[in-house]
Structure formats: C-alpha cells, structure tokens
Amino acid sequence: MPFFNDSDELGTVMRELWVTIADDSSISSPLLSSKLIVRFHYKEPDGQITIDCSDGENMVIEWGDCEKQPVVEMFMQADVAHKFWMGQVNVPMYLLNGKMVAKGPVNKALALLPAIKPAFKKYPSVVRTTLNRDL
C-alpha cells in the first residue's frame, strides 16, 4: 500500500519539507550556491515539485505545474521519495536499477546529495505535523 493516499497528501508533505529545508541555512546554503532549478516528478500518487535556487539567495518552491525550465529533473515513485527522505534509499543502486531516473547534467544534482542528508532528520516531524502520522 502506498504511503501517500493521494496527491494532496504528497504535495502537503513535500511542500512543507522543502519550506523547512529553505528555513535552515545550514542545509539550504549549498543548494542555493548551486543555482540549480530541480524538478521532482512523482508517480502513484502523481505530482511534481520545482525547487528554484537560480537567484542564489532565495529558494522558490512550487508544487504542481510550473513554467520554469528545470536544469535537472528526477523521476520516481512517490514511495521511493518517501523512502529517500527516510534515509532508506541506496541512491547508486536505485540509479543502476532504474527506480530513479535523472535527466539533465546529473553530476551537479548528485553532488548535492551529501548536503541534503541532514534534512532526513526533519522528515519524520514534517510527516507528523502535516499528516498527523507517526513513522
């Protein structure tokens, strides 16, 4: 059974998670320095979120359709995203077996993985706050 019941739940959690990341300069600084626009596409339930760090100062988070042209796009099942933020995804293995698809100059995006790892600790409390669900 999928962790997220529908796109609304997925969107609520992902938006809040990225707002939390944006508010923590220790995590957001390296992401802003990259000046990347990254879009995550989710399936089952479906949804997409765009993280725009292009001005290097503010992180703009947009859930749903967005006209901005992403530099890098990542595609995955919503359950894979959930496991990722729980720190349970072996990213190299998921890239080898195709459970994660990366489009664009992936080296820049993958280089940011160590920088966002501290956000794994924030994810359970985001889920608790937004969905009233313990992990």
Binding site: E73, L95, A102, G104, P105, V106
Partner: peptide
C-alpha cells in the same frame, strides 16, 4: 542536451 541523464 535534452537526452542527457540516467535511465531516460
């Protein structure tokens, strides 16, 4: 440029 990436 549109076709670079992994598993696309």
């Amino acid at each position: 440029l549109a076709n670079q990436g992994l598993n696309i």
